[in-house]
Amino acid sequence: MSIHPQIAEILSTLPAPDGSPLDPAAMRAGEAAQVAPPGDRLPLHAVEDLTAATPAGDVPVRIYTPVEADTYGVLVYFHGGAFFLGSLDSHDHVARSLAKESGHKVISVGYRLAPEAAFPAGLEDCYGVVRWAAENGESLKWDGKNLAIAGDSSGGNFVAAVAAKAHDDGFFAVTHQILFYPSLDLDFDVDRYTSLRENAEGYGLETAGLLPFNSFYLNSGADPADPLVSPIKREDLAGLPPALVITAEHDPLRDEGELYGQRLTEAGVNTTVSRYAGANHGFVQNFAWIPEFSRVFQETADFLTQD
């Protein structure tokens, strides 16, 4: 189907890319200016900023407690932003919705960004916080059952990489992985996936912009041939946690997400791939207020509670 009309209307107001160099500082400032004031945010029982002490260093986290309860499942969330954008604030509304709909305590990770922090700093921060959550289960009131990881776009990349690192380290506490339109292959050959050509222009994220946007990460030492950088290149996916892969119909990254889900299934991993018709890349962050897309949070909650 065509792009959702409300998304199309907003996209029509955006300036076309002019090919000028990307300015991380200016783009981060623009992102910060769009953050809703605290009084306009989805209310929860508690929201607390803490610092997680990890082997990678102290990592800022924001912990969302949906309701008062004796115990909780825990979901660790990695925001998107092409490895150089995004923050605890820019994705605060996503974390709140995940907490409210799932009933899980959500830990959002303020990982270090490229280009200031070279690979694998951000990935190590994310993995460190997952280990920290497991080690601090008593203070978090973790129920000892669900310890899920979730992320959107580049955050979905970190989900896949963290799941692989945990498996290889013999750390089997991670119970679910949730990838929202993940960026899983940082080799941007336009002939690699049909969606890179089908959705090349006019849908927000453009194929021609993938390399410039990810260049801050790649130039910091991230090798696209490394499975921790391009998780779809991991040869053996057996033994990874059950997965929910959410894709968008009008997204250049659609096919790599769906291929990853297919490969997980072939490796014996319980996997659900769910494509959102009429959606574009970033819809969980930008367009979840549209009723057809808000169900993504309920689908996530259902995945976390299924046997």
Rank of each mutant, 00 (worst) to 15 (best):
S90I: 13
F213I: 06
H4C: 02
N136C: 05
P21D: 12
N146V: 14
L196P: 08
L304R: 02
D255V: 05
G128K: 09
L88M: 13
R192V: 07
Y127T: 09
G144S: 09
D92H: 12
A173G: 06
V190I: 15
D191L: 08
A56N: 04
G110F: 14
L85F: 07
V229A: 03
P60W: 09
E135P: 08
A95E: 09
Q177P: 02
K105V: 11
V269P: 07
L244P: 07
L253H: 04
F158Y: 15
N219A: 14
D168G: 02
Y72I: 01
D18T: 09
Q34P: 00
Y276K: 01
R192C: 04
E299Y: 10
L237R: 01
F283E: 02
L50C: 13
A133R: 00
K165F: 11
N146W: 13
E101Q: 15
Y72F: 06
D58I: 10
H93L: 14
A200H: 04
L42E: 04
K141S: 11
L88V: 13
V67G: 02
A8D: 01
D58W: 11
D226A: 07
F293I: 02
T51N: 14
R197W: 01
A53E: 15
V159N: 00
E299L: 14
P115E: 11
P24N: 10
A69R: 09
Q262E: 01
R234F: 04
A133G: 06
G257L: 08
Q6H: 11
S2M: 09
R254N: 01
L50A: 14
N270M: 10
A288H: 14
N146D: 13
F172Q: 13
G81L: 06
A163Y: 04
S215A: 15
A36K: 14
L123D: 08
A53M: 14
A248H: 03
D187A: 07
A33Y: 12
Q298M: 13
P60Q: 11
A301R: 07
D125V: 10
I107V: 13
V269S: 03
L240R: 03
A8V: 07
V35G: 11
H45E: 05
L75V: 13
F78D: 05
R62V: 02
P242G: 08
L123P: 10
F84H: 15
D187M: 10
A99Y: 07
F216S: 13
A8H: 00
E68V: 09
F78I: 09
N157S: 00
A248Y: 04
I290P: 07
P224H: 02
